[in-house]
Design a protein around this nucleic acid. Structure first.
Ligand code: ZN
Ligand code: ZN
Ligand code: ZN
Ligand code: ZN
Lengths: 137, 137
DNA sequence: CGCTGATTTGACAACGGTTCTCATTGCGGA
DNA sequence: TCCGCAATGAGAACCGTTGTCAAATCAGCG
């Protein structure tokens, strides 16, 4: 279904700014990060407004929302088509972008196998990079 | 490689009670629900202790933990020691366990390709189960 | 244009799940 | 048994999120 309930919302400066901030970043960002970004750009928007608009947008299917491991909601513009994942080093934070057709197909297949539709996935790979592997024990 | 850090934890009455409560329920339960269950059985265990033990258990891979749509962590006893993932329904919370050799191999390969060692991964797949797909128009 | 009424905003309080603090408890090895 | 240190428990603190409500803003209309 993916019901676009297309709530008739009034266009406002704040909503546009939030949508813009989202569109500018290909990564998932939290409401608070977006709020800080806007503040950094001199755009004054209330934190509650950021939350309200983000949840409205996600309800309308304009943005994707997932929960981080610690329960924080993070949002990303839906239009982003350069879908990819990361391999992150636990030692130094080095992050390498990887595209994984194999994992995309696996997620779709395994979900479909159980009758699921509108499948999404979050995949994070972390380890120790070559340098950190050598440096630390 | 999903290292079982096998923390040497001291066996206590509380830990056993929590593990027992988990083992008794096939469903995912929140820390607070488990705490309430124990209280109902007359087993007095501090809420903080429930939280501490649950996160220790999940770190050791003894229990599965997923996040509900509203950010609450829910736990379930791991039937098998085998590494596996879940497909979770965004509508009703139904969670299906899946073993994903393909994704394991992909994670290993893509990490090794970039020189990473001690690779771990987090994989979450979610969608709408057959029932919820049909239910919501 | 200016009025009018509904929508949206923003500052702040409130909420709920989780984590922290620290004095107390109680295993477990010597 | 004695001691040292992990584990516990009660409550406060924390933090992301949601609720409150008066003030600001917008669309439509006269
Ligand atoms: Zn590194
Ligand atoms: Zn992907
Ligand atoms: Zn469902
Ligand atoms: Zn896996």
């Amino acid at each position: 279904m993916t019901e676009q309930t297309r709530t008739d919302r009034r266009p406002t400066r704040q909503r546009a700014a939030i949508a813009d901030a989202l569109a500018r970043s290909p990564e998932f960002r939290s409401a608070q990060e977006i709020h800080a970004d806007l503040a950094g750009d001199g755009t004054r928007v209330g934190l509650a407004t950021v939350y309200r608009n983000l949840q409205a947008m996600s309800a309308d299917g304009e943005v994707d929302v997932i929960r981080t491991a610690d329960g924080e909601a993070v949002y990303r513009s839906c239009a982003t088509d350069d879908h990819h994942h990361h391999v992150v080093c636990r030692g130094c934070g080095l992050a390498v972008e990887v595209t994984g057709d194999a994992v995309e197909r696996w997620a779709e297949a395994v979900a479909a196998e159980h009758g699921f539709t509108h499948v999404r996935h979050t995949v994070e790979v972390d380890g120790l990079c070559a340098q950190c592997s050598a440096g630390s024990v």
